[in-house]
Nucleic acid binder design. Sequence first.
DNA 1: TAAACATATCAATATATGTTGATATGTTTA
DNA 2: TAAACATATCAACATATATTGATATGTTTA
Lengths: 117, 117
Amino acid sequence: MQTIDEQIEVYTKFFHGLSNPTRYRIILSLLDGPKNVGELTEDIGCSQSLISMQLQCLRWCNYVKALRDGKNVYYSISDERVLALVQLGQSIADGNTDKICTCEILKNEKYVENKEG
Amino acid sequence: MQTIDEQIEVYTKFFHGLSNPTRYRIILSLLDGPKNVGELTEDIGCSQSLISMQLQCLRWCNYVKALRDGKNVYYSISDERVLALVQLGQSIADGNTDKICTCEILKNEKYVENKEG
DNA sequence: TAAACATATCAATATATGTTGATATGTTTA
DNA sequence: TAAACATATCAACATATATTGATATGTTTA
């Protein structure tokens, strides 16, 4: 059993998985099919260590699973529902692209609405 | 038109909306029906300023909309698909509750898997 | 128009997160 | 078993985020 607080923590941590560009790119890339760390590193263009760390995070939270094949470790999406989740999020976000890009509130920068409520 | 980087930024920022306990609680609460800032503050149990700031964030990103009624401002969910998104996320996360709770990788703490791949 | 009320913003701060380069670990093969 | 290769972890650091109390803004009503 869990308290409400614990439940909320689980869900927010889960969604946090999708809130970082590196992790998100990894997921998108793996939705195309399994890849090893080297391939992902090249695909995404950042340090190998970062890819590896983020993969551990995604794996821990069950977004992806790992399968070693000799020297390589191949990662793949572990739950098909992730595709639906990503697609649904994207379709909602697509309706509000410009604003989302400039959501600076939590950076303590000023929130200025031109007009309207 | 957007570059891939810009698209990724939009989507990760959008999902970031669901990655914080205060914002998540606000959304859950509003899925039950519209509420004003005072009601949400009482519901969630944190400072009024925090509720207000997070509401601006959620509003900016189109999770919620605002409607002033005299001294009060009532907030409500602005896109019905948010319910589906939340439910889908929760159902995926529910299968992995214990691990998600302890995902400490990005805190630079050690990731130790008991066994298995 | 002053008081009361509701909400929004500001300034400051503590904490969490993302990132990298260096290094360690694990695996294959000469 | 040493070299080469692939991946994982570490240590350090810069940046982003969450949060609060104080204050400003906007709205109603006496």
